[in-house]
Each structure stands twice: as C-alpha cells, then as structure tokens.
Write a protein that binds this DNA or RNA. Structure first.
Lengths: 233, 233
DNA sequence: GAGATCCCGATTCACCTTGTAACGGCCCGG
DNA sequence: CCGGGCCGTTACAAGGTGAATCGGGATCTC
C-alpha cells in the first residue's frame, strides 16, 4: 500500500456531501490522511493549512468552477498534484482541465477502486516514488499485469472486458480472503449502483467461463457470504 | 477484545425498545460504554454530549430517515464511524446508505454475534487499531480462520455451512466453558427465532459428524446443562 | 450502423435450514 | 438390579433461500 512512515495527505474539494463522504471513507480506509472542503474558498484555506500532497477537485463548485481553484492552488505550490472530478457528460471540459494543470481526471459516477488506483498512480508519478511494487498480480497459474491490462492463465492469454477485469483484480487483491457481494458492488461498480440485481453473480459466471477453460475451478463460492479465490495447493 | 484502558463508546439510535435493549445489553456485556437514543433529535444531542466512537443507526426513525442523521453527525465529527441497521426487505437503500457515508450495515433480524463482530471490525478500521489479534481461533488440533471462513482439523479442511460455522465459532470463543442451548440460540441464531425445536441438537450433531471424522470427540455434552469443547489433553 | 458490452429478469438448480419422529442411552426410583 | 421416563442423538423429508446461467434489450464504442 502507501508508505507507512509518511502517509500521503489528500484534500477533497466537493460540495455534494454524499460524494465527499464516499471519497473520504475510501481514501481513509486506504491509509491516506484526508481533509475536506466544500467550496473553493475553503479549499484554498485548507490547502494552506494542511499542505496536502494531492487535491481531488470537483469541477462544479458553488462559488466558481474548479479551474480557477486549481490555478490558485498551483500558484502557491507548483508541485501540488490535482485530480479533477467531473460529471460524465461534460467530457469537453476534461481535456481543458488536464491542460490547465490537472494530473488526471475522474468522471462521476465513478467506481471506488478506480479512484484509489488513480490517486496512487498520480502520487507515484509526482512524488517520484520508486516503482517498488511489482505490477503483476499472481495467484497460482493466474497472472494479471496491471501495466498492460493483460491476464494470463497457464501461460494462455485471457481476454476480459473492463468490468470482468476490475472484478478479477479485486478478487486478486483480496486473495485468501472472502469478499461479500456488497463489497464487490461497492468497489468494482459505480457508487450509484442500486442493489436488487444479480450483476455480481452474472460476472462471476462470465469470469469462470473464461478462466476455468484453462484449468481447475478458481473462484470459490461461500454460500451466504461471498466469493474468494481458491486456496493454493 | 477491546482496548481495556479506553473502552469504546457506542451510541445506539433505535426506536423499537426491544431491539434497542438487545443491542444495549449485548454491547455492554462486551465491554462497551453504551448510550441510546430513540429519535434523530435525541441522537444528535446525545452524540454531542457523549462523543461516541461509533453509532448504530436505525434507518427508519420516527422523525425522519437515518441518512440525514448520519449526515448531521458526520458534519460535526468526520471521524465518526456509523453502522446502519435496516430491515432485510429494504435492500435497495442499503448500498446507497453505505455510499452515503456508512461504514457497514446490519440487516434485521440479526444474530447477536454478528453485531459484535461488525462493531469490532469497524472500530478496528476507523481507530487504526493494529491488526494485533491473530484472526485464527485455535483449540487443540482445530483452527478457524475468520478472514477466510475456513476451518481445519489436524490440517484437513472442514467444509461447514454458515450456521455450522457460527455455532462452532461461538463454542470456540467460549472454549473451556459450558454454553447452554438457550445461549447458543440467542447468540448464533437471529433474535426473533422461536424455540420449540431441536435445531441446536441437530447442528451439534452435524458438527460432530464433520469434525470427529478427523480425530477424537471434540464437543462435550453436559446433560441438562449444555455443550462445551472438551478440555485439551 | 455494427459490434461489443453491460445489466436485468426468469428459470433452474443446489444446498441449507428446520421440523418431525424414531431410536438409544442415562439416570432415577422402585 | 430392573424398568420407565427423559434427554439427547440422528435420520429423513419438506420448504425456503441463495446461486448459476441464459437470453434479450439497452447502451456504449468505434
């Protein structure tokens, strides 16, 4: 995970309390120190006080748009990393945002794992942290290369759709543990996903069909609890 | 269990007195400092006064739904942990609730041991308590891993159903003591379970069949009293 | 516009749970 | 020492619940 002796600090600038909560809880859970601000004014003040390593910046704020906030913050500290958060149906601005100094951007509604991945990626770049972690996840004869988004089992490449890939990644990251369907919905799917559907089962089924063609069953069902990767022999 | 020099404080927000009682007694028994509130108003006041570490929050309250209460509480103290309590047949809101700021949720009717487990889990996360406790329960050649929900005896994996698993866990946690059938019903089964059945005996029998295949008898019957794990040799 | 992807609903299937009931052993009284 | 009743054990069956899978329609991507 993150360097334990100096947890990175993230400032969340977001006026919708629900979204701010999701981001706060998620990042806290992943070991970041988190502060929040609901307006551009507060953001500038909070940035001076807490000196974050990274800012998650909503583009639509009650007191003016995020570009200006970004510019202001950058004027004071040009090593500050910024990830813009924007509505999906405004992709036109996004490029502009990146051009104006954002290091990355995320569209709403987002999936929680996506946010964590991007925050880590940006911090790794801007803090010049060594590429310490092997980007290849392994479990038995299964390997996933996060750099190339490619998956292999027993040497054979496996072609996965984005959702399948994200689901498998979450299972791999929690190999040896059992994850509930709720957790999978929370982490892999977008935050506005409603329950009452069998999406998770469906995608587990897809994964099994593609993966178990190349070897023994890999994903284990714990009835009433959730799913996990089968323990290694 | 919990850090003895600073017992965690829990605020229960629940309008049904029966449920509130169950929760209060259970958590008190497990060493928590407990306060209760029956409405959202009271909850906010009580939270200011007692500064709990965690709130158990019923979603259906007489004066408005729990999300707003959660939001209000969080606005004042953003490090506050919240576990939602909700009826089973309202799963639609559940993910939304989590997304809107809950750390976990419990559905009614619940099993008492489940509540304690979740409260501990959430506090461990939010208070950054070290993962000090070995998540593996042991008793002789029997081991139970609570992270993977897996059980082994003499190295051999034992496949248990959820109820069997919960029952064995309760016996393990009370190893060396004798537990009455009533206690088992109360802790392992849901609180609204009615008696007049031999469920407990049945499940003890299932456990014996699965466990004693791999070694000498493990579960001891105290006629007229209850069950316990046999003392170690 | 074509193809892939995603998600929902329905169906089927498997297993879990619980109640009933028969059997057996333990304990107590005679 | 014997018999009866009670408690515990276990088998069996029915019902319920969660999971797996498939097809179709909506949506997105190129």
């Amino acid at each position: 995970m993150e360097n334990p002796e100096s947890p990175a600090t993230v400032l969340i600038v977001e006026d919708e309390p629900g979204i701010a909560d999701i981001l706060r809880i998620t990042l806290k859970y992943h070991g970041f120190t988190v502060h929040t601000a609901a307006t551009g004014r507060q953001a500038v003040i909070a940035a001076r006080e807490h000196r974050p390593d990274l800012v998650l910046l909503d583009v639509m704020l009650p007191d003016g748009n995020g570009w200006e906030v970004c510019r202001t913050l950058r004027a004071e500290r040009d090593d500050l990393a910024v990830i813009f958060v924007t509505a999906r149906d405004a992709p036109r601005d996004v490029v502009g945002g990146l051009a104006l100094g954002g290091d990355d951007y995320i569209t709403k509604p987002f999936g929680v794992d996506e946010v964590v991945a991007r925050v880590h990626a940006v911090l790794r770049r801007t803090r010049r942290e060594p590429e310490a972690v092997d980007p290849v996840l392994r479990h038995g004869d299964l390997e996933m290369d996060e750099a190339t988004y490619s998956v292999r089992r027993a040497g054979e490449p496996v072609d996965l759709t984005p959702t399948e890939y994200n689901l498998l990644r979450h299972l791999l990251r929690n190999a040896g543990r059992i994850v509930t369907k709720e957790q999978l919905l929370q982490h892999v799917w977008q935050y506005d996903t409603v329950v009452e559907s069998t999406v998770v089962e469906t995608y587990i089924s897809y994964l099994r069909r593609k993966l178990d063609r190349l070897g023994p069953p890999l994903i284990e069902t714990r009835r009433g609890i959730g799913y996990g990767l089968r323990a290694l022999a």
